[in-house]
């Protein structure tokens, strides 16, 4: 019997997240023996073909009316821990509309829908690992009405392609709801990396945010040479 077991991370439920209390394993994660490690890293080659304008969430399709709210642009690089670009990889984002409502059918109907806003988009990184989105500044939303817990404005991101795989959230510095958001609090010293950096204004007055997405750990174990 191995002497080294049960030494992986212990995952922590957010302090007020009802789903986490029922879903986060109570046991520590198990370490993967060296001899078994290779097969844990999926290599994702089949990615969807993208339509024109899928990285512009401010319109449902090119030529359609613009959604309500403040237009923002989010751009940056997807990188591994050594600063190497993660190329030709799918970046998906989704965020609530100006009033804090998702178009997802499971979002309880509290706030207005915007007929011109779907709230999700995707793009592929280029040869330098760059990505760019235009979206609407998301509203805060009441995630737990029972305990009056609001989520600060945030944009969800998913990275998928090759061995890269990451789900993360981008936040906006100064949001008053950050201090009470369990997900943000759990980030600890990593919090600053999860802020989009306001770098200026675009030609139509839109706020420009730079956000580099660094993928760590085993998720870049295979890397193109």
């Amino acid at each position: 019997m191995s002497l080294i077991i049960d030494r992986g991370r212990l995952m922590l439920p957010g302090p007020t997240d009802g789903a986490a209390e029922r879903r986060v394993p109570s046991e520590r994660l198990h370490l993967i023996p060296e001899a078994a490690r290779r097969s844990f890293v999926p290599w994702i080659t089949d990615l969807p073909g993208l339509k024109l304008g899928e990285n512009d969430l401010t319109r449902i399709a090119p030529g359609r009316p613009q959604a309500e709210g403040e237009v923002i642009e989010i751009s940056g690089h997807v990188l591994d821990e050594f600063g190497r670009p993660v190329r030709n990889t799918l970046v998906e984002i989704w965020n609530a509309n100006k009033w804090g409502r998702y178009t997802h059918v499971k979002d309880p109907v509290r706030e207005r829908l915007d007929p011109n806003f779907l709230g999700f988009g995707r793009t592929m990184t280029d040869e330098a690992g760059r990505y760019r989105f235009r979206t609407i500044m998301p509203g805060s939303y009441l995630a737990r009405p029972d305990i009056d817990r609001w989520r600060p404005a945030h944009v969800h991101v998913s990275i998928r392609g090759g061995s890269a795989r990451l789900i993360a959230q981008m936040y906006f510095a100064g949001d008053p709801h950050l201090a009470r958001d369990p997900m943000f609090i759990l980030l600890g010293e990593a919090q600053p990396r999860h802020f989009g950096n306001l770098t200026g204004q675009g030609p139509s007055g839109e706020a420009l945010y730079n956000w580099d997405i660094v993928i760590g750990g085993r998720n870049t174990a295979y890397f193109e040479s």
Partner: peptide
């Protein structure tokens, strides 16, 4: 570089 934290979907 310090990686981002994995977060809930």
């Amino acid at each position: 570089l310090a990686p981002l934290a994995e977060d809930t979907v």
